[in-house]
Amino acid sequence: MNRAYSEVALVPYDERWPRRFESTKKELRAAFSTDLIEHIGSTSVPGLSSKDTVDVVVGVPDVVRTLNPRTLSKLSALGFEYIPSSFAADADHSFLHRIIQEQRTDHVHVMRLGSDALQGRLLFRDYLRATPAAVIEYEQAKQELVARFHDRRDDYVAQKQPVVEALLEKARAWMKESR
């Protein structure tokens, strides 16, 4: 089985991740006509270890209309594979990934502008960037989970979700206090 589908490995923060994001963003501009293409996920937080996969969110007015055959063809030509089964229950969220030599290089989340899910992704990133204690908490949880589930990617992702949700609750309180 392709390691990109089964294994999880965390690496220390890499100063090249922001440049990789900018490169991916330029590529995505060829497929999407939107102003919102943002770096999210652990690779967007200086000092945080991560899987070596750059996460990107693309905000669009309508996910289904945007991911039409013409757009998907452009994305496929860039090496992105559309995974319709990911987030299938959410019409406001679709997912693509790019895998090169059994390495996930990019994840692209196409989300409806203004949706709670998109706002949550950006808030989570901003909270981690602004809160060193949250970075430490998240780092410890991820290290513990990867030690248990390094060869079971789906289990790692599932077990990490409650950690993300708890931190997102803290992020929402932080946002209210910051106003």
Rank of each mutant, 00 (worst) to 15 (best):
E7C: 06
L96G: 01
F32R: 07
R19K: 10
V64D: 04
A77F: 08
R98V: 09
Y13S: 02
D62Q: 07
F95Q: 09
I37G: 08
S73L: 12
K51A: 07
D14F: 00
V58Y: 10
S49F: 07
R20D: 08
V45L: 08
A89E: 14
L72W: 04
S94C: 13
T24I: 10
D90L: 14
L10R: 03
E15P: 12
A77T: 13
L10P: 07
V64A: 03
D35V: 11
S85V: 05
D55W: 05
V60K: 13
D52C: 02
W17T: 10
V45W: 05
D90T: 09
T53H: 09
R70H: 08
A89W: 13
H93N: 12
S86Y: 12
A31T: 04
T43Q: 03
Q101W: 12
H97Q: 14
E81P: 01
K74S: 11
I83R: 01
Y13G: 01
V8Q: 01
W17G: 05
L67C: 04
R20N: 11
R29F: 11
E7V: 09
N68Y: 12
E15K: 14
Q101A: 13
A91S: 14
L78T: 01
V54H: 01
P12T: 00
E15V: 13
S73K: 15
T71W: 13
D62M: 05
T43P: 02
V58S: 13
E22R: 10
I83F: 02
L96R: 02
A88W: 07
G59P: 01
E38N: 05
D90R: 15
T34E: 15
S85R: 10
D90P: 09
R70E: 07
